[in-house]
Design a protein around this nucleic acid. Structure first.
Lengths: 104, 104
DNA sequence: GTCTCTTATATCATATCTGATATATTAGTA
DNA sequence: TACTAATATATCAGATATGATATAAGAGAC
């Protein structure tokens, strides 16, 4: 993994290389993170078209700060919440599936 | 939601109608559950083709009972674990995306 | 400059998910 | 029948994700 990308992930809380400086992520771990980041980016795009973070948070029964974290790819946000958020913006399973399928 | 389906979900731990007998699931909640169940079913299919639950659990750094729960649509299993399990069976983001896209 | 709206960051108690363990059940074979 | 492999169910302590809250920072209007 190149250094710039690694730095960016670590800033968001991803413990890349925590176990060992020399132990890299497995392909599966990398793909999982990429799926999360793809969902994050798409969520932000979708949400910005129609509402504020606060409005989305209300639909989600969540909070504005949590939506901000979701959109910024924070490691504390699960795929579960990302998908719930996508659905709350009106995304269909088809659209969500496509975002994931585009990864890789 | 029809009664047979509801019973099946409740047996798996889904708190359908917990808040109130008269308060049904929102479409988003229903879709989320359907996504989970679709991933569960697909995981079981994929895994059975090539390995035992114990073998998959090892690849996942998880346990056989947890894989069983994942494959049986237990409510205690997150989408996160379902996707990690799919990846561990060798599924690509394309395949995972397709499973989700087929929901609805 | 100040307001106002929106988004980002930090902290935290609680809820949920986790893998581990023990054990039960099922399916197949000798 | 007994034996074995595979799967299912139950429980639980520890880890992770959660929404809430407070507050800071950014962007735009005035």
């Amino acid at each position: 993994m190149d250094e710039a990308k690694r730095k960016k992930l670590e800033d968001k809380g991803w413990k890349v290389g925590t176990v060992s400086e020399f132990l890299d992520l497995t392909p599966e771990e990398t793909t999982l993170i990429e799926i999360k980041l793809a969902l994050s980016r798409n969520l932000k795009e979708r949400r910005q078209k129609s509402m504020t973070q606060t409005e989305l948070a209300d639909k989600l029964y969540s909070s504005q700060p949590r939506v901000a974290k979701a959109e910024n790819g924070d490691a504390s946000v699960s795929i579960e919440l990302l998908i719930r958020a996508m659905l709350a913006t009106g995304a269909t399973p088809q659209e969500i599936g496509q975002v994931i399928a585009q990864v890789g």
